[in-house]
Amino acid sequence: MFELTMAKGSILQGVLEAILDLVNVANVDCSSKGFSLQALDTEHVVFLSLFFPSEVFRSYRCDEDCSMGIAIADMVDLLRASNDGDIITIKVTDQNFEDITITFESPDKTKTTDMDLQLVDARSHRLKISEWHDMESEYQAIFCMPSAQFMLNCKSLSVIDDDVVIRVNEEVISFSTKGKSGCVNISHVPNKTDNPEKASVTLTHMRGPVSLTLNLRYMKSCAKVSTLFDQVKIGLSTKLPLMVECKIAEKGYIRYFVAPKITE
């Protein structure tokens, strides 16, 4: 049996709302450690991997590891029907592995709403990616910035063109674009420390200068999720997709991997 409860408007609900513009269907894996989700956008440009440790929920129980495909858009629609103050329970029983049950309970416990959502096949939405601790050393540059700043950069650049070039070297982290009507270049002078301050842009890992070109449509989607958190961590590599990460509590995370644009 798997069962988690959360208050309406909790972080999981906010994140599911924010990923909808990219993702319809997701693979969800539950273990005693927590709730993880992987999804691929229809164009196979963005892969999303998130892990919510059990302690971020109001209550969490998972007797046996389970894996299921969930139509996230339908699930979010159902969750939207909850009222302020409701406690939301998501449950899968061992007897029935065809659907999940979502329950809303009013704060005074006088009203309960039960809904069943059919599970779907989402196996084609999986990718084989290495453990993050193995991948992290492959990134040439990793920096952190306030997520509101990241969103602002993406919005400012998308006025001019569909693409952004992110360049990182020891001295500067820049976001730039060039279009028919002009160009924009936003430069940040980074702090260099392992312990980033919340309000600043910090270069945490640097193994050599690197630049990548990315489609701003996808970047804006990543920025949308990141604004639920104070800081966003961005990793660049010429051999891997761009990585955008937000931390959830001590061990949790949301990671987006975004395939860059390449010159042919």
């Binding site: 196979h44 440009v45 892969f47 990718l127 489609n215 051999k239 891997l240 644009k261 390449i262 010159t263």
Partner: peptide
């Protein structure tokens, strides 16, 4: 010409 790459160029599908 700049072209959008796909994740399958970086990761294997399962």
């Amino acid at each position: 010409v700049r072209k959008q790459s796909q994740l399958t160029a970086f990761f294997a599908s399962t």
